[in-house]
Amino acid sequence: MKVDPAVQRRLLELADVDAELARVDHRRRTLPELAEIADAEKAAQAKKDAKVANETALGDLDREVKRQEREIDAVRAREDRDRALLAGGTVSSKQMTDLEHELNTLQRRQTTLEDELLELMERREAVELDGQHAAVELAKADEALQDAANRRDHALADLETVSARRTADREKLVPEFPQPLLDLYERVRKNRGIGASLLRQRRCGACRIELDRTSISRIANTAADEVVTCDECGAIMVRTPESGL
């Protein structure tokens, strides 16, 4: 394939543009913020789970406290009723004895229930403090997640700016090349990542392999307008005075 040497040299500009676009694409996919966000999302979810578990525990304790309070109220009501019967003087001596025994039992029961209620209230206070701590930790996790997301968005916006600029550069360059040359370039770029490179000091700029004497001799004797490719990677090798031929 014969192509004007000046047009071949312009391929190096296209290759530079494509290399930068490839770096931008790689950067998009490997932003450190992406891994940071994934970790932050896991941390935030763990904090949310902890907060929900705390709220569940607090709800269970609240129900237990109310049940205990109702039972204490029932014991007190029974005690008040018995004391009212005793104060009324309308019961027999046997009933009085039974009521006094029941009152003693109710007092012991009330003391036990009140001790249990106090323990429940202490547990509830501890769980409530844990809940406040969980809420603070969740807020911190959400803040860290939002911060990482903001940094990711800023980085992506910068990359998008570079991508748009270099894509525009590429669109201006592409029409300068004959279609057969462009087809060869795109085919090699798709398969190898680099479609064209500078042959510098007898070394292919794409695969970095130094050419042997036979290849150098063959290329040196090839017309300047003939397109040459690397035997190793297939990239178009653009010859300039730096090629060392």
Rank of each mutant, 00 (worst) to 15 (best):
G89S: 03
L99M: 13
I216C: 06
E119R: 15
G205L: 02
R165P: 00
E69R: 13
E160Y: 07
R124W: 08
E79Q: 14
R213V: 15
L103P: 05
H154Q: 11
T90I: 07
L11S: 01
E102I: 14
R187T: 10
D73W: 02
P175E: 05
E116I: 08
L120P: 02
L118H: 12
A206K: 07
V17Q: 04
N221T: 10
E119T: 15
D39E: 12
P5W: 07
R23F: 02
A134G: 01
P32G: 03
V162C: 00
K66G: 10
A149C: 05
K140P: 03
N191W: 04
E64Y: 10
E36V: 03
A44E: 08
R23I: 10
R202T: 09
V52P: 06
V238F: 12
A38I: 01
L184D: 11
L211G: 12
S197L: 00
S163N: 10
A77Q: 12
A235G: 04
S197Q: 01
R109V: 11
D82Y: 12
Q132T: 08
A223N: 12
L34N: 05
A126H: 09
Y185Q: 01
R63Y: 00
R203Q: 09
D73L: 12
R83Y: 08
E143V: 02
E210G: 07
A40P: 03
G244I: 02
E64I: 00
E79F: 08
R78D: 14
A235R: 04
A148W: 02
R108A: 13
L198C: 02
M237G: 05
V162F: 03
L11V: 09
V65R: 15
R28E: 08
E242I: 04
H133R: 15
A57G: 02
D115T: 10
D225N: 09
G195V: 01
P180V: 07
L138Q: 02
A74R: 12
E176P: 07
R67M: 04
C233Y: 01
T222K: 03
D183E: 09
D231N: 08
T167A: 11
A168E: 14
Q8I: 00
R108H: 14
V7K: 14
N221R: 12
V65Q: 15
E143A: 15
T30F: 00
R108T: 05
D153A: 15
A38P: 06
K140L: 14
R187A: 13
R166L: 14
D62G: 12
L198E: 11
R109C: 00
M96E: 14
P32F: 01
R63I: 04
E114F: 00
K172G: 05
C233D: 07
A35L: 07
R152A: 08
